[in-house]
Design a protein around this nucleic acid. Structure first.
Lengths: 224, 224
DNA sequence: GTATTCTTGTATCAAATGTTACAAACAACA
DNA sequence: TGTTGTTTGTAACATTTGATACAAGAATAC
C-alpha cells in the first residue's frame, strides 16, 4: 500500500494533505513494488513510461559505458522521484540504470494515470512543472557557466553575478578548493588566476573577500 | 483576436483542431498585444508570470551583459512559444530581453489561466510537458558532452554514440569545421587530434568516413 | 600553548589547446 | 580545361591549464 505521510514530503506531492493524497490514489491505477538489496530496478535504455517514486530505502543510479562497465552517478533516497525529466519528451528512455542499495519500496504510476493525476489536482501539476522547469533552469545555468573558456572569464562571470549591480565586494562562502571544483579546474590554477588578476588591478583579495576594482574591464573579459 | 489556424501549429497546441482551440480559449482570459518593429516585448529579469506565444511576425532574443551592452542570442518566429522553461520553477524571470524584429502579434496567457488550460485539455498538457522535458534532455545531453575535457574524449564519445553497438564506420554529415564548432574547439585542433588517433591505430579516416578500429581502447579514453 | 589539520600562495614542468599560416585535395562552375 | 572557393592536413609557436610539490598562514582540537 502507499504511505501518504511519506509521499506528501516528495517534491511532487508537497503541499497535499495525506488524506487528499489517499483519495487521489483511489482514483487511479498504480503499483507498489518491493526490491531486495542489489536488485535491478530499471536498466538504462528501458522505455520510461511510468513515474517511479522511492517510498522506502535508497537507490543507486549508474551509467554503464559502451564496454559494459558501470560508473556511479548518484544516490537517491525516499521520497524522491526518479528520472522526472524523462517521462515526457522525445527520447523517453531511462538515461541510467537503477539498483537498490537497501530494501526498497517503489511506487510506480503508469504515464497515462499520472497525466490523469496532473489533471485532477493543480497542486501536483504545478509541483511537477516546477520540478522539471527548475531542472532545465539549473542545467541552462550550468551550461552558460561552462561556455566561458578561460578561468579568468569564469571568475569574472562568477564575481559579477555574485556582486550584482550594487555591491563591489564579494565574500565567497566556500573554500577556494570547493570553488575550483565548481569551476571544473584545479585549485592551484584558480589561485594563480586570482593572483594575476590582483597584480593587474582588476580585484583585491583578502582571504575570502574579493573586491572588484574595475567592473568595466571585467566585463570586457566576457566578450573577447 | 486569436488565430486558431496558426496557433494549432505551435508545439504547445499541436494536434488540436482549430475549432476545439477556439472553444478552449473562450473559457479562459488572455490578451493579444501588438508591437511595432524594434519595440521591447519583455526585459531581462522581468517576472515571467504569463505564457507568450508569437502569433505573427518574428522576435529577437538578446542578453544584456553587466555593462549594459547586448548580445543577440536567437531569432524566433510564429507560432513559437517564448521562454517555456521559465514560466514555472524557482527563478521564474525572463533570462533574455525580447524585441520585435517586425510587426508582431503576441498572445499572452496569464500563468493561472494556462494552468487551467493544462487541466482542461490533456493534449495541451502532454505537449507542454514534452516541450520542457525535451529541453531538459537536450541540455543534459549537451552538458554531458562538455564534461569530457580533452578533444580525444569528446571525439571518442561522439564516435561511439554515433556508431552505436553495431556499426563500425561513422559518416559525419557536417564539415570538420562545423564539427569543431559543436565541440567548442578550433578546427586545426580537431584535425590534429584525428591525425593522432589515426597514427595510434584507433581509427581510420577517409574524408567524412571514420572507421573505428578499436572500440575497447576507445572506451578506456572516456574513463581516465 | 601546542600540535594538528585545513587553507592558501607560489613555483616548476608537462600536456593540451589556441593561433596563425600555408599547401594540397576536392567541388562547383564557367 | 581552367578557375575559384571550400575543405582538409599539417606545421611552428604561444597560451592556458593540469600535476605535483612545498611552505606559510589560519583555524581547530587537545
Amino acid at each position: 500500500m502507499i504511505q501518504p505521510e511519506i509521499l506528501c514530503q516528495s517534491p511532487i506531492f508537497r503541499g497535499i494533505s495525506p488524506e487528499d493524497l489517499e483519495k487521489l490514489f483511489s482514483q487511479i491505477h498504480f503499483q507498489v513494488k518491493t526490491y531486495q538489496k542489489n536488485d535491478w530496478i530499471v536498466n538504462r535504455g528501458e522505455v520510461c513510461d511510468r513515474l517511479l517514486i522511492i517510498q522506502t530505502g535508497s537507490v543507486k543510479a549508474e551509467m554503464n559505458d559502451y564496454s559494459g562497465k558501470t560508473i556511479k552517478i548518484e544516490d537517491l533516497s525516499a521520497p524522491w522521484p526518479l528520472a522526472t525529466a524523462f517521462l515526457f519528451g522525445k527520447g523517453n528512455r531511462f538515461p541510467v540504470s537503477l539498483s537498490a542499495t537497501s530494501g526498497v519500496v517503489i511506487l510506480s504510476i503508469p504515464k497515462p494515470e499520472f497525466v490523469m493525476l496532473l489533471q485532477l489536482n493543480s497542486m501536483i501539476l504545478t509541483n511537477y512543472l516546477n520540478t522539471i522547469s527548475s531542472r532545465a533552469q539549473f542545467l541552462s545555468q550550468k551550461l552558460k557557466f561552462l561556455s566561458f573558456k578561460t578561468i579568468r572569464q569564469k571568475m569574472a562571470h562568477f564575481l559579477l553575478e555574485q556582486a550584482g549591480d550594487r555591491l563591489q565586494t564579494v565574500e565567497i562562502s566556500q573554500s577556494q578548493g570547493q570553488l575550483a571544483e565548481m569551476f571544473g579546474v584545479t585549485r592551484p590554477s584558480l589561485a594563480r588566476t586570482l593572483g594575476e588578476m590582483c597584480r593587474e588591478g582588476l580585484i583585491e583579495t583578502d582571504r575570502r573577500c574579493i573586491k572588484i576594482l574595475d567592473k568595466t574591464r571585467m566585463n570586457q573579459l566576457l566578450k573577447s
